[in-house]
């Protein structure tokens, strides 16, 4: 395959950055998207141009490190992570535009790499169950109804990649936030901190500069783990209930 790549290059956080165009040839259908970029980088290295910086780590779709906006869609045209996207999803002669996640809360570090520490701070603000090591009761002492356990698991599959923010026209992180609220809220262990958690995490979400949700649904469509929109409903409901509980 021969491709034209339009890639966002930006030397550091203060640089304005712009799109550069590269031609690349000899790409196999079996390559992953990131392997295609590896090939480009080898080529750039040979030509004496600094390789394109992009994030990736596990390359098996679970760590959440990869983060590219490909032709206007987070992680590209398939419902998966960028690292699991393969070149057979493209055609010979295609032009592919690659940009970093665009969010005020995710400043660009370099080229396609962004800083997602805002997500860590949202978790710090309350995305946990306080259980000091050693203080846990016997695991089977609290049964968890299977439906709750299944729902908790389904939303706990969030990998924190930020695709939801990247897709959202409002730059909201509600899907990420809602997934954690729902995960912990479904479990009996999560109840004691449930109302303070939703308020603290939402406040942090706003403080980081993420926008408000208008229930458009692009986040859920972009989510590589297919976290459903009901987590946002759950988030709203929990916040409303927290208000009633005086938080």
């Amino acid at each position: 395959m021969n491709l034209t790549l339009k890639i966002w290059r930006q030397t550091d956080a203060v640089d304005k950055g712009k799109i550069h165009t590269y031609a690349i040839s000899g790409i196999s259908q079996d390559m992953s998207f990131l392997e295609m970029l590896d090939v480009l980088n080898e080529q750039l290295n040979e030509q004496g141009e600094e390789p394109v910086a992009f994030d990736s780590d596990c390359r098996e779709g679970i760590c959440g490190m990869c983060s590219l906006m490909i032709n206007g869609e987070p992680h590209g045209p398939e419902v998966t992570t960028t690292c699991q996207l393969h070149m057979r999803s493209f055609n010979d002669g295609d032009t592919i535009t690659i940009e970093p996640w665009r969010s005020g809360a995710f400043p660009v570090v370099k080229d396609l790499v962004v800083d997602r520490s805002a997500f860590d701070r949202i978790i710090q603000s309350g995305g946990y169950i306080s259980a000091n090591t050693g203080s846990a009761p016997e695991a089977n002492s609290v049964p968890v109804p299977r439906d709750n356990a299944v729902r908790a698991f389904n939303v706990a599959t969030c990998i924190g990649c930020g695709a939801c923010v990247a897709a959202c026209p409002n730059g909201s992180a509600s899907l990420f936030l809602g997934a954690k609220i729902t995960h912990l809220g479904e479990l009996p262990q999560g109840q004691p901190e449930r109302w303070s958690r939703v308020v603290d995490m939402t406040a942090q979400h706003d403080h980081e500069g993420f926008g408000g949700c208008t229930n458009i649904g692009e986040c859920a469509a972009a989510c590589p783990k297919e976290i459903p929109l009901d987590v946002i409903s759950q988030l709203n409901k929990d916040l409303r209930t927290a208000m009633r509980h005086g938080h």
């Binding site: 169950i129 009761p137 089977n140 109804p145």
Partner: peptide, 18 residues
């Protein structure tokens, strides 16, 4: 025990046990 207390969603049986 520790992981369950933290909210790790392990697979469960219909009775709610691990």
């Amino acid at each position: 025990d520790q992981c369950v207390a933290q909210g790790v969603p392990f697979a469960r049986e219909y009775g709610g046990l691990l």
